[in-house]
Design a protein around this nucleic acid. Structure first.
Length: 192
DNA sequence: ACACGGATACTA
DNA sequence: AGTATCCGTGTC
């Protein structure tokens, strides 16, 4: 069952947590989401909205469930989903997948053998799945492009990875004991 | 450990 | 214009 707009019209922390266990489908490739991070429009210095007017405009001009895709370090495309909840707006960064289908294609795109290294990072999974800048601004609640399918997972939380500000927020969510995540959690938080 | 790479937002 | 920074990866 494809996630509808109502799923993303909730608090970003809830969306990020509940996306663990859901599946991401694009073309022939499919994977289970095992790692996400939440970024809040307000009160979160690590969110792009803290520095970028263009990101604040993106939120104003798009609805919940829209893909926010941007390039980091001039190399890596990172895939986020816009959320708009009653307590504020935000983005969920998808950081790792457990590959389920289209693994031959993923290997070809990534240029590696094995499976553990295919989607174990936000930049890796966009290559494996075939995401590029053309997905920026696309509505993922509509048929035709990337699809997120509801699923359940056991969740643990940890601090976010690779940021320089607001490092203390425990806003990274992972499938418990998953071998598919980018970095194993150090401080393990509450389960769900 | 470090190089790689480009968009964005600053300073002047 | 130039500079600093950035939600990373692969290879050294």
């Amino acid at each position: 069952m494809r996630l509808g707009r109502d799923f993303f019209e909730r608090d970003v922390l809830l969306c990020a947590r509940e996306l663990i266990g859901c599946e991401m489908v694009l073309g022939e490739c499919r994977g289970r989401i095992v790692e996400t991070e939440a970024y809040a429009e307000l009160g979160d210095e690590a969110c792009h909205t803290f520095m970028r007017e263009s990101t604040r405009q993106f939120i104003a001009n798009h609805s919940a469930g829209t893909a926010y895709v941007y390039q980091n370090y001039g190399i890596h495309w990172l895939f986020n989903v816009l959320t708009k909840g009653p307590s504020g707006n935000g983005f969920v960064l998808v950081r790792a997948l457990a590959p389920l289908e289209g693994i031959v294609t993923m290997r070809r795109r990534r240029g590696v053998d094995g499976e553990k290294n295919l989607c174990s990072g936000p930049g890796k999974l966009t290559v494996a799945m075939g995401f590029g800048r053309e997905f920026h601004g696309k509505d993922i609640c509509q048929p035709g492009g990337v699809e997120l399918v509801f699923g359940k997972g056991e969740v643990e939380s940890d601090v976010r990875i690779g940021i320089s500000r607001a490092k203390e927020k425990p806003w990274r969510f992972l499938e418990r004991a998953s071998p598919w995540v980018s970095v194993k959690p150090k401080k393990t938080g509450a389960t769900s």
